Measured scan of single mutants.
Amino acid sequence: NEEPLPEGWEIRYTREGVRYFVDHNTRTTTFKDPRNGKS
């Protein structure tokens, strides 16, 4: 039961299956979860 991502964020996966987060607001990507700060 995960809380929803902030507005404008999306979860994607690399070809290796590593989860990362896309911030469409700033057009950046990060491996850090914007909901809780954990990677």
Rank of each mutant, 00 (worst) to 15 (best):
P34Y: 00
P34F: 01
T14I: 03
Y20I: 07
I11W: 03
T29R: 12
G17N: 07
F21H: 00
G8H: 06
N1I: 13
L5P: 15
E2N: 10
L5A: 03
V18W: 08
E7V: 09
W9M: 02
P34L: 00
K32I: 15
G17P: 00
N25A: 08
P34D: 01
W9N: 00
R35G: 03
N25S: 07
T26D: 04
E16M: 12
N25Y: 08
R27V: 07
E7P: 15
F21W: 07
G17Q: 05
E2D: 11
T28F: 07
T29I: 15
W9F: 05
H24S: 08
N36A: 11
T30P: 01
E16F: 12
G17W: 04
P34S: 01
S39E: 14
T28R: 09
V18Q: 10
S39P: 12
T14R: 01
T26K: 06
E10V: 07
G17S: 04
H24W: 11
S39N: 12
N36G: 12
R12D: 04
K32G: 07
K32H: 15
G8F: 05
F21R: 00
H24K: 09
H24T: 10
L5T: 03
D33R: 01
F21I: 00
S39V: 14
R12C: 14
R12I: 06
E2Y: 11
S39Y: 12
W9V: 02
G17E: 03
T29D: 07
R27N: 15
P6E: 04
G37W: 09
G17A: 04
D33E: 02
P6K: 06
T14K: 02
R27E: 11
Y20A: 01
E10M: 05
E3F: 09
R12Y: 07
T28Y: 06
P6F: 03
T28E: 10
D33A: 00
T30R: 05
T29H: 14
T30A: 05
E10G: 05
T28G: 05
T28W: 04
K32L: 15
E3N: 11
N1Y: 13
T14E: 02
P6T: 03
R27L: 09
E16H: 14
E2L: 10
G8D: 03
Y20D: 01
T14P: 01
T29W: 15
R35V: 04
P4T: 08
G37M: 10
P34I: 01
N1H: 13
R19N: 04
W9L: 02
N1F: 14
I11D: 03
S39W: 12
E7H: 12
Y20R: 01
T26V: 02
R12L: 08
T29G: 07
I11T: 07
F21K: 00
E3V: 12
T26Q: 05
G17R: 06
K38A: 14
F21Q: 00
G37N: 13
Y13I: 08
K32M: 11
G8E: 03
E7L: 12
R19C: 11
D23S: 05
E7D: 14
R19W: 04
E16W: 12
P34G: 01
Y20F: 12
E16T: 14
N36L: 15
L5C: 01
V22M: 09
V18K: 11
R35C: 03
F21V: 00
